[in-house]
């Protein structure tokens, strides 16, 4: 193992993947430090799942290279599989097996010593000991997710790859789930987690944003926000929908996003944006306040721009 392998749980460069004539992953490079929770964000179909699958050896990249826990992602997929816990987007444990049978199967596959005690302990920690004999298919979404996490932690992996683990899970269960992730990270387990939720993105140490197969930004939340150089104003008042329409295309205005009773207006050119807004608000009942650009504002901005790029002739 070299120095970078000690430092990084995932270190991949220039990953490419095509499905037919679709360029699903285009030049993706990622570094995830040990013990870090790394958020992987992007719209549906942006290549998140494909990237994760390449990192754990489930797909072979068309080009690019890298290591996962110090092992080569193309040649040493077997070693990676032994030390990585991968939670698939769709629940992928056997619904016609009971909870205990599923955990037992996983423990056997990884040839875990002292299997019965391990499974019992896991069931206790999950709070599923009393339902161990229940068929997995009859569990609710939140319980399935907890079971899946427990199952992919069973072999004590050093890296977790979680593909939209909280999709369709209620807020309480999501909060519990993230607390668990932070506990795991504190124990030195690295986590790469893909998500659509902004509150979850803000709980990650680092973020990456991918759209149309391209990595658009990477870093801490603050770095990602700063990287786009947006100024944002919050406007409160009546008829915001009409105002948003009026502002679109005005000098300095790059984006308007409605947030309930408020309108976020962002633009790269802060001075012109302010001038435009002051003029629009003049004489009206609108309250205009400068505000911090949120992660969500930035993602919507990047998403809109990347789709423009994608549609433009190359």
């Amino acid at each position: 193992m070299n120095a970078s392998a000690d430092e990084f749980a995932i270190d991949v460069h220039g990953l490419h993947k095509h499905f037919g004539d679709k360029h699903v992953v285009n030049d993706v490079s990622l570094q995830v430090r040990r013990g870090e929770i790394f958020g992987f964000l992007g719209p549906n179909g942006s290549g998140k799942t494909t990237s994760i699958r390449m990192m754990c050896g489930l797909l072979t990249p068309d080009a690019g290279s890298g290591t996962c826990l110090g092992y080569d992602i193309v040649r040493e997929a077997d070693q990676i599989k032994r030390q990585v816990g991968y939670m698939t987007q769709k629940f992928s444990y056997w619904e016609d097996l009971t909870i205990r049978e599923n955990l037992d199967f996983v423990a056997r596959i990884y040839e875990m010593p002292d299997r019965k005690a391990l499974v019992d302990r896991t069931l206790d920690e999950l709070g599923l000991a009393s339902r161990a004999g229940q068929l997995t298919g009859s569990l609710s979404g939140g319980w399935k997710q907890r079971l899946a996490l427990a199952a992919c932690l069973l072999h004590q992996p050093r890296l977790l790859l979680l593909d939209e683990p909280t999709a369709g899970v209620d807020p309480t269960a999501r909060r519990d789930f993230w607390e668990e992730l932070h506990r795991l990270a504190a124990r030195g387990i690295s986590v790469l987690v893909s998500t659509h939720y902004m509150d979850e993105a803000e709980r990650c140490h680092k973020l990456a944003y991918i759209a149309y197969g391209r990595l658009l930004a990477q870093g801490t939340a603050a770095e990602v926000i700063a990287g786009q150089g947006l100024s944002t104003w919050t406007i409160e008042g009546d008829d915001l929908t009409e105002l948003a329409q009026r502002l679109r295309g005005q000098p300095g205005v790059d984006q308007t996003v409605a947030f309930g009773a408020a309108l976020h207006v962002s633009g790269r050119d802060g001075a012109r944006l302010e001038a435009t807004l002051r003029e629009a608000a003049a004489g009206g009942a609108l309250r205009l306040t400068p505000s911090d650009t949120s992660l969500e504002d930035v993602f919507i901005y990047m998403m809109a721009r990347s789709s423009d790029n994608f549609g433009a002739p190359a």
Binding site: L58, K81, T88, K90
Partner: peptide
């Protein structure tokens, strides 16, 4: 079909 293949493939089996 049930998606459990992906899970199997991700293990060392």
């Amino acid at each position: 079909e049930r998606g459990t293949m992906e899970n199997l493939l991700a293990t060392p089996v």
